[in-house]
Amino acid sequence: MFIVNYIKDVFTALKSLAIGLRRTLFYFTHHNEIITEQYPDNRATLRLADRFKGEVVMPHDANNEHRCTGCTACELACPNGTIKVVTKFDITPEGKKKKAIDKLVYHLELCTMCNLCITACPSDAIKMAQTFEHSVYDRSQFTKVLNNEGSKIMEGVE
């Protein structure tokens, strides 16, 4: 009896292995089932989802103007101290002092892409960019100033 069971076991075992191998053979012959992304060869055509949270950026228009008022709401909302708003005082044509940003310093290495700063910003001055290749040679390159050199606030944004 033992021998019969033993042989039975061997046959069920072989059968289960064959069933598994059938799958392997199926993929071996069906190339269109393969879904591998050929990164980095497909970099030119690779597009990430529109909402992908890759990095905080500040969009500027053609006149090098942004929408940031320097209210520091983003700085307060950030859980990691990633954003530092450095403000200055502009003198308006009427001779009044007006608060504006000097620099919006962003530490990419501290950012967790949680989106809280974007939600907190009352004037939609910052948004998430779809970048993802963030490696650099030196850590200091992670510290970015989001507003462009010589940029100023758009007309009408309060």
Binding site: R51, F52, C114
Partner: peptide, 20 residues
């Protein structure tokens, strides 16, 4: 990725509902 903007750490649920 399309709805929440991330693949692993989504941070999509916020008090009161969902982010977007």
């Amino acid at each position: 990725e399309e709805t929440c903007g991330a693949r692993l750490t989504m941070n999509y649920m916020v008090p009161g509902g969902v982010l977007e």
